[in-house]
Structure formats: structure tokens, C-alpha cells
Design a protein around this nucleic acid. Structure first.
Lengths: 244, 244
DNA sequence: CGATTCTTTGATCGCTGTCAAACTCGGTGG
DNA sequence: CCACCGAGTTTGACAGCGATCAAAGAATCG
């Protein structure tokens, strides 16, 4: 990445980056963006199934998804896996590594993806001089925490259908923020991944997709999911815990 | 709290505070602690069942448990509840409020408790001058994130017994860090709270306690849980995802 | 001591996990 | 171009775990 990128280009390419966080009025100044940009480093695109960082590796950087999609998961000693999250463009990964110097989870691509690397040493240096950036970073981390809580709410619902409905709605909302069509989802993850994420069996997920299609809520074809009746979807979510 | 508290007293009373985080070599200097102390404000003890801050209230401060125990939970429009965490002395609460200016969850005491209030405005001021404190705060937040992930791993386990076993072991570990007896737990939360936290029915939790007692793993009497066979408990946890 | 809350225990049923097999799609090579 | 293959997905059958309903027992508090 050339260091003298003009600001408009920077805004475009990083428009919905978690750090920039365009949703908020308390954004960063032009100078701030330049400084931040200097710490960021683009990485070569990763093919599907490649590992960005493995659980246990020494912590060194945060990563922001630029394009594509990744999943993060923890792996137990007996090959037991729990998916923690799916990460779309603008999402930040690796925050858990701050606490104990090692990444507590693995990050792996679900499709060909490119990410932006924020070396922590440089980031720390930058934040020391930029209170606004520091505050922003804090908020981004807080946002990651709230996302996790939203995941917990999903898992807490005892009916499988509610979990899946809730999941789809959340994906729809995330798509909307990315200026994608919130009613025509292309899910980058497999049924098995969805099932694991929701704490269900993959057959159950497949069946539920079928059931929701029969009910006229969705139109499902492999990875393509079209929301036909948003109102019915909301209904399936039931007692709605409205997270941020 | 007098502002010229001597340092030893401060260390003692805040010995296992999340901010101080004595576990780490990269601690704060004496001056740093004094500055931090100036931002902290003790609050009157709260009785059992009282709300420290409700979901939706404007964000203003972080809170650290000094004594007692609290739970945090989100509440849906239909009274649907999901408990996010149980907070013991040294734990920090309210971080989720950073992202959107409002607390995303309610914090309520499980027993008579006292907390320490860290006004965010003052904290921000303090961090601007203290890079070490800033780093420390970042790590604390990261730690909260990892804790949430650990909760997710719990909920992902499909067998109820594993969830409860895992929960008990985690409580035991937390007790150990607080220099309490890790084999003689006094659980401050109700069966219903435990069940909700684990995504189970309260009757199931009660039955599982009974089953684990019959198996000779535990000795259970209401809120008092004694771990008789830690090895068997570990066995019940099964495919172990060892989080930090 | 009565009232309330929390916990335990029992009985039943349905959801969902598990095992199993068929099917679709994409890719590879003959 | 087609046959083959493997991964991923769908669908079916079945049983078991755990949710739900119900009621009794234990602890706390006024």
C-alpha cells in the first residue's frame, strides 16, 4: 500500500472498516486517518479454508476483514470445536489475543478473502498520540463484546427454530449495513458451521430451512437464502431481545 | 474514600481488581495506582436484588465488584431473559456500554454487594496521561471478551451434564483465583439463574446436581457445593476446550 | 407460625440428536 | 462430452434427552 494514498480513496476502501466506524458522529479527523493508515498493512488474499492465525499463536496484530468472510473458533484437545463468530467486511478479529499474548481462537477463511493487518505495536504507538483513535478502538472492542453477547442470546433460546430465525435476521441486518440486499443472503458458511454456531445438529438446521421454506418465510437454495416474509421471520424470532 | 490512602492499603483492598490485575508482570506503577485511585469512587453497599444499572440507561461508568456477587442479563420485549455472566470480586462490568452510549444489559446483585465506580470521563482523562493504564484497560476488556467466549463454549456443548460440569469447574477456578477454597463453593445464584445461564431448564439443573451427587462427584446442599472428586468432574467435562 | 420463595422429585411428551441413505453439485480426468 | 468421485446437503426413521406440567418438600422472612 502506498503511503500517500489520497483521502477519498482511503475513505472508499475502508468505508465500513470497524476502526473507521462511519456510523458514528465521533469519527476520526483526516490526519487521524492518515496516521491510522500508516499502521495498516494489506495482506495477500487468502484462499478458501486458509488459516489467518491459529489458536495459540503469539499475539501480534489485529485484523480487519476487507473482503470475503472468515470464521473464528476454539478447538478442544479432543478435536471438539465451537465456532465463535462469522466475520464480514469491516469486522475486526484477534481482540482476544490482547489479554494473554496468545490468540485464544483460530481464524479461518470461508471463501477467498483479503484482510488488513494492524500490527499491535504500531497501533499502540498511534493511539498514544491520538486520543480519538484510542477511544474509537475501545469502542470497537466493546462492540465485539456486544456481538458476542448477541450470540449468547441466540444460544440461550431453547427452540431450534428461534435460533435459526434469529441468526438469519442478524445476518440480514449485517448485510444491510454493508449496503448489500438484506433480503437476498448468500451465506458463506456451510450448514455444519451454522449448526455448530447455533449449538444444533446440522440435520436440524437443514430441516429447519426446509420447514421455513414450506411456511413461505424463506426461499432456500444451498447457500442462497431469500427472505420472502420478513414479518413472519420476526414472528418466529418470538420474544425479541433487541440487541444493538 | 480519602484521596491520600497509603499504597499498601490500596493494594490490599484492590488486590484482585480487574484493573490492577495483579496476575500480570506488566502492572502499574505506584503513581499510576494513585492516579487511578483518584478516579475510582466507592459506592454504598447494595442489598440483594438491587439494580446497579439497568439495560438502556445512558452509559457513564464502569464498575468493579469489590465484594459480593452480581449478574448481568439482557431482557427482551416479552420479558425474555438471558443471563450473560456472574460477576465476582475483581470483575468489571459495563464495558458493553462503550459502543453505543447505553448499557446493553442490566446488572443486579445476587447478594449484598459493594462495587467501585469508575466514571468514564475521568477514566479517559487518566488513560490519556498513562499509557500503561490504557494498555491495562484494553487488556481487561479483552479478558471480558474471552470470558464471554468461554460462556459460548459452555452453551455449545449439547449434553446438559457437560454444561453443568464445565460451569462448576469454571466457578472453582474463579474461586481459586480469589484465594477461596476451590473445592467448597458457595454459589450466590439460584438454580434458575444457573439454568438460564446454561440454556437449560431449572429442573434439569436440579436433577443433574442430584445425579452428580449420586455419582460421588459432588456433595450438594442448596447453595453449598463441595467438589469431592475433581478427577471425575474433569471427566464429565469431556472433550475439553481449555480457555484462558 | 404462616406466607413466600426456592428447590427437589415425579410423570409425560415432544423436540432434536443420532444413525443411515439418497441426492445435488462441482470438479477431475479419461 | 461423459463418467466418476467426493464434499456438502437433504430427507427419513427412531429413540433418548430434556422441557414442560404438576406437586410436594425445605428454607427464609416477616
Amino acid at each position: 500500500m502506498t503511503s500517500d494514498l489520497d483521502l477519498d480513496e482511503l475513505r472508499r476502501s475502508c468505508g465500513y472498516c470497524a476502526i473507521h466506524d462511519f456510523r458514528l458522529p465521533a469519527g476520526l479527523s483526516a490526519d487521524d486517518l492518515h496516521t491510522l493508515n500508516a499502521t495498516a498493512r494489506d495482506m495477500l488474499p487468502l484462499d478458501r479454508g486458509q488459516t489467518l492465525f491459529p489458536q495459540g499463536r503469539k499475539f501480534g496484530a489485529l485484523y480487519v476483514v476487507r473482503a470475503g468472510a472468515l470464521k473464528t473458533f476454539v478447538e478442544g484437545s479432543e478435536g471438539d470445536v465451537q465456532i465463535l463468530g462469522f466475520h464480514l467486511p469491516g469486522d475486526i478479529m484477534g481482540i482476544g489475543g490482547l489479554i494473554n499474548e496468545h490468540y485464544p481462537c483460530t481464524a479461518q477463511t470461508l471463501e477467498r478473502s483479503s484482510v488488513c493487518e494492524l500490527r499491535y505495536a504500531q497501533l499502540q504507538e498511534a493511539t498514544a498520540n491520538l486520543p480519538a483513535l484510542n477511544h474509537q478502538l475501545m469502542r470497537v472492542i466493546s462492540g465485539a463484546l456486544v456481538d458476542e453477547q448477541s450470540h449468547l442470546v441466540l444460544m440461550g433460546k431453547q427452540q431450534a427454530q428461534r435460533r435459526l430465525a434469529f441468526f438469519i435476521r442478524r445476518m440480514s441486518d449485517r448485510y444491510a449495513r454493508l449496503s448489500r440486499d438484506p433480503l437476498a443472503l448468500i451465506l458463506p458458511m456451510s450448514r455444519e458451521d451454522i449448526a455448530n454456531y447455533l449449538g444444533l445438529a446440522l440435520e436440524t438446521v437443514s430441516r429447519l430451512f426446509g420447514r421455513m421454506e414450506s411456511a413461505g418465510v424463506l426461499s432456500v437454495n444451498r447457500k442462497s437464502v431469500r427472505i420472502l416474509r420478513r414479518d413472519l421471520l420476526d414472528e418466529l424470532c418470538g420474544g425479541d431481545i433487541d440487541m444493538a
